[in-house]
Write a protein that binds this DNA or RNA. Structure first.
Lengths: 211, 211
DNA sequence: TAAGGAAAGAGTGAAAACAACCTTTTCCTC
DNA sequence: GAGGAAAAGGTTGTTTTCACTCTTTCCTTA
């Protein structure tokens, strides 16, 4: 049987070379035909070498993984693309899930999952790792809860999570501190948390504030 | 000659196993005696297995790389620690540079640099990669605070950031609430924040708590 | 158009969080 | 064995948080 030819795209040489050695050990039927350090490089090498599978990190310089994957797919439909990433925002997850890439998983998952994903996409299946789907469900629940909030509550939540005191929030929004306290109490109930710490965690999780 | 025993600590199984395979190929004099997925696990395994070198990612759950390294060094001075990370803030770089860890480099550097760094620390040299020093040079002028947190402070910080009240933290740790208040005040000063919200943001950012 | 309900704003009081001091003990380093 | 850092605890007083209640406005919808 002809070996499965894989193109590895990751910004870190340590990951690229580590993965190459690891695949040689654990996936004897495969062969790493090339590696790429940027999204542009991945697109170029995919066009040139026509690998069976492109294993690509979403976080890359010049062109991110999903954009590179889309370009690669466009130039040749047969290629299977497996995106793996260290961390993904809910928005990012959604875009990848709705895209035409063959597989998606997290770097934090066990290496067995990677082997499984590679085998799945090699056979032209569609693979979305369990960790990623549950992480998505969790964040969409968060989003669900967040969009039950009023605009005013979201404003207040963002300011509280940005480490502003009640007084500061009140003066920023031009109302009395007591009003902000009312909003805050309401937020506690809606989001089922007990303190500003819980609000902060929720705001960060739902992407309302930057870390 | 006895092989150099290495402990690998990284949050991603793909990096851990890739590195293990890669070292087997490229560093025949070495032997990966264990891997760890969290900072706490790294501390425990380092104490148990007494490796020659600990290769540790700075970004890790439960305890970040530098904090874990410090604990490991404290329990046994002979061990050599090599920190590698995908990205570092200037503050973080400064803290690592001023710490007692043996070596530091970026994941984005060539794998030859990693081999070189491993060989350097194996011979008890101090290694700071060129990429890291040049990136650090422009910012290290401004003497940022070297305030390292104590183990107890880290425990308290984690519990506060997990939405526990002062009373709860006190009873969990078996001390009086007043003591926790003292730790908390101290944390405010060291981390330059004003409230539990700031502590939470800091704890999440440094991977001390899960979101 | 009248009733109902959600949202915003605001007051009171108890319970915390917080600041700014201080003391004691232990453990580690020099 | 002196000195220093970490941990634990205490005192006093101020500020903030938070639950509870209340009014007004605005937007449905029957």
């Amino acid at each position: 049987m002809k070996p499965t030819r894989i193109l590895i795209a990751d910004a870190c040489p340590i990951v690229r070379e580590g993965l190459r050695s690891w695949l040689r050990e654990r996936a004897p039927g495969s062969e790493v035909c090339a590696v790429a350090a940027t999204g542009l490089e991945a697109v170029a090498k995919a066009a040139e070498l026509r690998p069976d599978i492109v294993l690509i990190d979403d976080r890359m310089p010049l062109l991110d993984g999903l954009a590179a994957a889309t370009q690669i797919k466009r130039s040749r439909r047969g290629v299977e693309i497996l995106i793996f990433s260290a961390a993904l925002t809910p928005q990012r997850k959604g875009r990848i899930f709705r895209s035409s890439v063959s597989g998606a998983l997290l770097k934090s998952e066990a290496t067995e999952e990677l082997l499984l994903a590679l085998e799945a996409v090699r056979r032209h299946h569609r693979f979305r790792s369990h960790a990623l789907t549950t992480a998505c469900a969790k964040t969409s629940r968060t989003a669900e809860r967040t969009d039950r909030l009023t605009n005013r509550e979201i404003e207040v939540l963002r300011l509280i999570a940005a480490e502003h005191t009640t007084k500061e929030v009140a003066s920023k929004l031009g109302v009395s501190a007591k009003t902000i306290e009312g909003h805050r109490t309401h937020l506690f109930q809606k989001l089922k948390v007990r303190s500003a710490v819980g609000l902060t965690r929720h705001a960060i999780r739902s992407g309302l504030v930057e870390l």
